[in-house]
Nucleic acid binder design. Structure first.
Lengths: 210, 210
DNA sequence: GTCTATAAATTGATAGAC
DNA sequence: GTCTATCAATTTATAGAC
């Protein structure tokens, strides 16, 4: 069958549907392996075997082990970024600043825990991969973090947030509390929704009685 | 010179002062390497070279690569545990529950950021090391977490904490916010003390104005 | 105690058959 | 597109000199 699509003419898309699907399966398998075993700990043979392939076959789809891990991280970051922007865009313009932050917390946690292994991989691998990959992916991390900075700044400007805390520290503390869940969350315990709710309550309202 | 000490007679301590010192230097170097490059990414040759040794020499002090990483993690966990218990024991008996939690937050962050690379290593490596090592170290992690659980339970029992949040989620969220700092903290920015203060304020008092 | 040299085992990557 | 076979490069671990 013909394998080319109109995308080929434009030179912007996948040239083959089957290859593209296989590429997706490889990325999913690689995301899981790299995230669970670390960058250096994940072997190409394991990644291939987990989807019924042989290591050599991966090279038809990716130039190298490094290209593979970078593709995983870029995809994960892109998904998180897109999900957050989509969620925020869906809020009505009169949504209060604190409600926006709460929505962001729930969206981030959902992405990290539930949606795609590549999201958590892009977070956990950032300090393990070679420097050139790290620098490129880190630029994306900063763009994502900028959304959070904007949310926090707007909330503070609106008088909804206390003004005596370092916003940068605050941002990283929130993301740390959320990202850490990758390491302890287990299906069967508290649901992602419940976890997000509790963390949002803690972050915004505090643990202390009032 | 004679290298044995009285400890040797009892069979419980270091048999040689020089060997013991070297062992410490190896553990420090290994902690840094394992933490920064991941379990599989850190090479024995790099660890040895960073303290002016050769890879083969490490085997005089440790049986294997796995024994080395386990020793690093056990030491790190032990330090964090000891530091927290020491700090809490130093508080007067009339210290309010929230002040205890605040002290614990500051102590944990100080240990993770400042005191020893093995503390952060014991945290970051837990899901990367072989299963048998992980299981043994995880038992120590649970013992450490139990201190936090006790702190939170006592605070709630005293009516100082809101009662509608899952304490387990709360505990992991706090530790996540703190542990994450390993990845973004850079000397020259906000000090560990300032970071600890801001996170404690957020966790206990919340970000929202009241 | 530490070094050098080397054995033994992996693993990323390539070439060519199908 | 995927497989098999193989090369080349690493790296853990050991043995013996000093």
């Amino acid at each position: 069958m013909a394998s080319s699509s109109v995308d080929t003419v434009l030179g912007i898309g996948p040239t083959d549907r089957k290859a593209e699907l296989t590429r997706e399966r490889i990325l999913d398998a690689a995301a899981r392996a790299f995230r669970d075993r670390g960058y250096a700990g994940a072997r190409l043979a394991d990644i291939a075997a987990s989807i019924g392939m042989k290591a050599g076959s991966l090279y038809y789809h990716f130039d190298s082990r490094e290209a593979l891990v970078e593709a995983v991280m870029v995809r994960g970051l892109g998904r998180a970024h897109a999900a957050l922007e989509r969620r925020l865009a869906a809020l009505t313009s009169d949504t209060p600043p604190l409600a926006r932050i709460e929505a962001a917390i729930e969206t981030h946690l959902t992405e990290v825990l539930h949606d795609s292994d590549s999201v958590s991989a892009s977070i956990k691998l950032i300090w393990q991969v070679p420097a050139d990959i790290r620098d490129r992916v880190l630029a994306g991390h900063r763009a994502y973090g900028a959304i959070w900075t904007r949310l926090l700044r707007e909330a503070r400007a609106a008088g909804a947030l206390r003004a005596d805390l370092d916003l940068s520290v605050t941002r990283m503390a929130i993301l740390g509390a959320l990202n850490w869940a990758v390491d302890w969350y287990k299906p069967g315990g508290a649901s992602p929704r419940r976890i997000a709710r509790d963390i949002a309550q803690m972050v915004l309202g505090g643990l202390a009685t009032r």
